[in-house]
Structure formats: C-alpha cells, structure tokens
C-alpha cells in the first residue's frame, strides 16, 4: 500500500470507512491519522499520514504468536485467525507499530488489508473511500501496478525501517 502524504488532508475518512466496513468496535481503530509538524513558525513543514498495520515482510507478531493465530496469508497480508487466538497479547508487544489491539470479544484485531474485499477484486475500504486519492493498494511485485508505479515516480519512506521488519506501507513524500 502507498500513502501519498502530499495529498492526504488528514480528514479521517479512511478511519471511519474502515470502522464501518469491518465493524470495528467502539473505541478502537485499525487505521489512524498522524499529523506531524516540524519547524518553528513560520518555517513549518507538515506531513499527514494515514497509518495502519504495515503487513511486514518479516512480521515479528507472527513470530511471537504461540498458537499460529497470527499468520501470513496468501499474498503476504498478516492476519489473525480468531478461533486460534488466546488473547495472550505477545503479538501486541511484538509489534513496533502498535497496530494491534484486543477486540472486546477476546481475540487480537488489526488491519486485514480488507482481504475479504480483495478477493472480490475490490480495494480496501480505506482506499475506496479516500476523497484525496492518497491511498493506493496493489501488487508490489507487479511493475505495472499503481503502487509500483507510484514508488518508481516518487520519493518515499517506510516507518521505522530500523526495526528490520520490512514494512509494506510506503509513504510518498
């Protein structure tokens, strides 16, 4: 997934669309907005980021999971199988992005990249709703995909590359 921080206006449509699509319980969110401001008046620089699970290539949450509930699903998305989750929270402590939380029903919940939509050929709810077109989702290995194209054309960063987890959400600058 790519997030074009130049377009994002931090409106939070992505957060609410995700909550509605995924019936995320009150008080929790699977994606969120971070607004960063650097500098001193009037020399300021701002960056808005729609953040979520990075679906890392080396997911420490999956490594930490004792039951196999946290797993890498087909295509590389990191998912939690509710039936296997004991709610031990090892994955929560293992995630450097704090992208997970305990669902009130006991299992650990997080962004699924809306894989249930992807299976129907739809984009994730956050991507579909975004009024600024700042989110894009697709196959990073396909050089013709929109995400690959955006990464070729733009300067980008990932969050905390020093964790070595290989995060897969890219922030275009």
């Amino acid at each position: 997934m790519t997030v074009d921080t130049r377009l994002c206006v931090a409106c939070k449509a992505c957060v609410l669309a995700c909550k509605a699509e995924n019936a995320v319980p009150d008080g929790f969110c699977r994606d969120w907005l971070v607004e960063e401001t650097r500098g001193e008046f009037p020399d300021l620089h701002a960056q808005n980021r729609s953040e979520r699970c990075n679906h890392c290539s080396e997911p420490p949450c999956v490594d930490a999971c004792p039951t196999g509930a946290s797993h890498v699903a087909g295509g590389g998305a990191v998912l939690v199988t509710h039936d296997k989750c004991t709610g031990c929270k090892a994955c929560i402590a293992a995630c450097p992005y704090d992208a997970r939380y305990v669902h009130p029903q006991g299992w650990v919940d997080k962004c699924t990249f809306c894989l249930h939509r992807a299976r129907r050929g739809e984009k994730p709810a956050c991507v579909s709703v975004c009024p600024t077109f700042c989110l894009e989702f697709g196959d990073l290995a396909d050089p013709d995909s929109d995400v690959s194209r955006r990464l070729r054309e733009r300067r980008y960063k990932v969050l905390h590359p020093e964790t070595g987890c290989g995060p897969n959400v890219y922030f275009l600058e």
């Binding site: 971070v34 960063e36 401001t37 500098g39 020399d43 704090d98």
Partner: peptide, 15 residues
C-alpha cells in the same frame, strides 16, 4: 529544526 508536534487519532484501549 528540532521542533516537532505530533497529533494522532489513535486511542485504542491498552495501546
């Protein structure tokens, strides 16, 4: 410069 303001909407309980 070192000045940094961060605002986030995330407020997940226990996180």
């Amino acid at each position: 410069t070192g000045n940094l303001e961060v605002v986030t909407t995330r407020h997940n309980a226990a996180i």
